[in-house]
Design a protein around this nucleic acid. Structure first.
Lengths: 245, 245
DNA sequence: CGAATGATTGACGAATATCAAGCTGCGTGG
DNA sequence: CCACGCAGCTTGATATTCGTCAATCATTCG
């Protein structure tokens, strides 16, 4: 995984030394939510804004974990590789999501921009110092970890016990509710990632993903719109299908 | 999942009002590790010791999350069910493991004793108060959550991308290293859970688990001993097989 | 000793992977 | 502006792994 080192070439903060967090559009969905003006200022001091184009790497598994991130816009995929190239995507991050809870001295997984992404980058040692000083932030991080763990358990059920059709439907529904949580609509859902990404997230092949989408289209369970949007005409019906009812 | 309500019938603390943690054999492997004498005393005040026989439930998914637990001995399985009965075991807990990080108001999964289990039970509101008073404990909990998340990601790779043989070998190796971490040997490994439990943990059927064990025996990769012990003659060789090298 | 429960093995089937061939949409350059 | 080429997506034919169904064996516990 030799990559251009983007981490050392951040985009200049457009607000200069003023508090960039003040203009942040995802603040109240991110870990920063719990911070007051003063605390936010302290966080802003160790933050750097970055922009990445699609396919650019954010972190590489095994590298020294020097930075933590907050996604401010766009979509990031997290993945792990087996030696022979098999890939498992362990999650997708959207605006407001934090990247860096599950790590030791080195990153336990790789991350890459799916589409155009903006990030807020923190130096890890500085972030950890701040963490000790701001117990609110630590509590919030624990709660974020707890949420991620719940999601991970749901994903294990999906990977271990669901059929291809149930996997695809569950995936679309989770995109739908996350989209709503970020202030959007439940439907149509935006699908910025490729079929190959979806396959590697759901433990399938691209062919099976494609065939299953076609099947769902034929059955009128979904409608594929322009711009990678998917319409979910009957979400309650889909919820039943997702669990094999 | 109607069950006898064991939570309201705890075994009496054999040490009475004295600090029961003082005698705890897994203290330095558990979250209590970071606490000093005084802090330990405060934790002990909200703790109750319990004993469960094999197959007795610890918590049920969906119930109000009134308690958190620390496993002090034995094995506990965590699982989620789909409406039609398909089951995914999301993890096994051993002595020193904490149960209750991933939860909201209600439990997100069920837990059941695999063999004879002893637990340390905490009332949740009291535990949360203590958490605010003991920042060390909170940091430790965050680190435990982080470790669980790393494990969960590895399990996603296993469930989504590994073959039956790789799954079984990976499982045996993880048991081996956890056994070592608790002060035991790398081999032989103790397998207290049934074939059905292993299957539901690895996203397989009991038949496939059984066949794969037989295959590994035939190939001399493992040896089944008495008392549910499995000998791993060449751990380095197994590590390669586990990742498909 | 016999019943029950769990483990193993076998025969067969089904879901999904693999291999291969078009198709679609889009950016590029003539 | 259109043709080309490329990457990603779709579809089809076939292969394979693992699941299902069923019988036997092993072990434990009354």
């Amino acid at each position: 995984m030799a990559t251009i080192d983007l981490n050392r070439a951040p985009v200049a903060n457009p607000l200069g030394s003023l508090n960039p967090c003040a203009a942040c559009t995802v603040r109240d969905m991110s870990i920063c939510q719990v911070l007051d003006e003063d605390e936010l200022q302290r966080l802003a001091e160790i933050a750097t804004n970055m922009t990445l184009d699609a396919r650019q790497p954010v972190i590489d598994e095994g590298e020294a974990a020097a930075f933590l991130f907050n996604v401010t816009s766009g979509t990031v995929k997290l993945y792990k590789l087996l030696p022979d190239g098999r890939r498992q995507i362990t999650g997708f991050l959207y605006g407001g999501d934090f990247l860096g809870i599950a790590m030791n001295e080195s990153y336990a997984y790789s991350a890459e921009a799916v589409d155009k992404v903006t990030l807020c980058r923190f130096s890890r040692p500085k972030f950890e110092n701040l963490l000790t000083a701001l117990p609110n932030l630590e509590k919030r991080l624990l709660s974020a970890a707890s949420n991620e763990l719940v999601q991970a358990q749901d994903q294990m059920v999906l990977l271990g016990r669901k059929t291809a059709k149930e996997k695809i439907i569950s995936f679309l529904l989770s995109l739908s509710s996350r989209q709503e949580a970020r202030g959007g609509a439940l439907s149509p859902v935006s699908l910025p990632m490729s079929r190959a990404d979806i396959a590697d997230y759901l433990g399938l092949t691209t062919e099976t993903v494609s065939r299953t989408f076609s099947l769902l289209k034929r059955q009128k369970d979904i409608r594929l719109l322009d711009g990678g949007m998917v319409d979910l005409p009957d979400i309650d019906a889909l919820k039943n299908l997702a669990d094999g009812y």
